[in-house]
Design a protein around this nucleic acid. Structure first.
Length: 130
DNA sequence: ATTCTCACA
DNA sequence: TGTGAGAA
């Protein structure tokens, strides 16, 4: 019954989290190196608690929404300190992200329109050529 | 299996 | 923003 290190539901080994979230152990260490995670250590081995796991979930969610690790780091850093400032930062970043996405959307729509126009002209030529 | 560092894209 | 490789 003695596993090497974590084996209950309160403690996790890096491999546990990597498997659960479908990411590499390297990526998790990378996030730690960037200051987004700060798991405890038993010797040199990382021990992740539920709160570390929760932070990882937030990191992954932030990434999925298109935020940089820097953005996510800044946000997480405010959790313990200024909570209302954290919310302010969040809304500001969301607005920023929204503006960026809207711009991308416009660009995509422009590209789609251009492609459709080109295709239309090409199809018309095929008509004439018979 | 885990750790770290350095290189590399 | 990560990965690969080598060594412990």
């Amino acid at each position: 019954m003695n596993r090497s290190v974590p084996e209950n539901r309160d403690l996790f080994a890096i491999a546990d989290l990597a498997k659960e979230f479908g990411i590499s152990t390297r990526a998790i260490r990378f996030y730690e190196a960037k200051g987004l995670l700060a798991p405890e250590r038993v010797g040199a081995t990382r021990i992740f608690r539920r709160r570390d796991r929760a932070r990882l979930i937030l990191i992954l969610r932030g990434k999925r929404l298109g935020f940089s690790l820097r953005d996510i780091s800044d946000y997480l850093s405010l959790y313990d300190a200024n909570r209302s400032q954290q919310v302010q930062l969040l809304t500001a970043k969301i607005d920023e992200r929204l503006v960026s996405l809207e711009a991308q959307l416009q660009d995509l729509q422009t590209t789609i329109s251009e492609l459709k126009e080109i295709k239309k002209l090409a199809d018309e030529r095929l008509e004439k050529a018979g």
